[in-house]
Design a protein around this nucleic acid. Structure first.
Lengths: 123, 123
DNA sequence: CCCTCACATTAGTGATCTATAATATGACTA
DNA sequence: TAGTCATATTATAGATCACTAATGTGAGGG
């Protein structure tokens, strides 16, 4: 597996609302699955799947203790990265939000709704 | 639009191989669309769409000069973030790659291939 | 052992994203 | 102003992802 593919997979781990909520929840201390489910008002199966994803992406790690399983961030770097997202978003927030008056902004048809119409600019 | 949704959209901007390649290409200096297309051996339409995406996600910005359009990273924070991805991946690489012997690792059916089978651990 | 709890797994479906091909648009040039 | 170049846009089909519901599995307690 190429480096680039690993990188994409890792980043995709963060690219989901539910997963970001989970990470927010365990950012400072480990939590059991049920605690996470309650915290984000999610459903057990769904949360469990996202936790598996986060684990597979190298973002969290798990520790079993009796019948409970405690999840936490893999290491401090992950926490820094989460904080960095917020920092950078500070700058960019308006911009990102603005383009989203018209829904999504990724590839495919959605993307173009974000573009301001091309203007005549001649230099 | 909620903060969390903005954050997801922003991060999704990075969560694609083609887009990461584009960013790599313009990491240190601005490039025209055609230069980017050549650099990543992509196709014009596809690259153009990804650039629109990156722009809408607040990751790059564009500058027109005659019939050329030059793209570059929005600001230094974005560059730092890109570098941070690599730093963090340094730690995590093996882990992420390992789980991917069996293909993908995100939500849905793919996710579980990553999990090591539950072992009997009793404490 | 049987039961329950905490959690993982699977299957199925709908939603979202990506790539390709075709076409459109603005800018420069002859 | 007709043509060409650089880039954007649209449509569409296929791939990938996320949610729900149902079921499976290991751990601990009676």
């Amino acid at each position: 597996m190429e480096y680039m593919d690993i990188k994409v997979k890792f980043i995709k781990g963060f690219a989901d609302k539910t997963r970001l909520e989970i990470l927010e929840t365990i950012k400072n201390e480990e939590k059991t699955v049920q605690q996470i489910v309650d915290a984000i008002k999610g459903n057990q199966s769904n949360v469990s799947q996202h936790l598996a994803c986060l684990k597979g992406c190298g973002i969290v790690t798990a520790r079993q203790e009796g019948k409970f399983i405690h999840y936490r961030l893999l290491d401090e770097h992950i926490k820094s990265l989460l904080e960095m997202f917020d920092t950078v978003l500070g700058d960019v927030k308006q911009q990102v939000a603005a383009c989203d008056k018209n829904e999504k902004c990724l590839c495919g048809r959605g993307a173009y709704k974000c573009l301001t119409k091309r203007k005549k600019i001649s230099l």
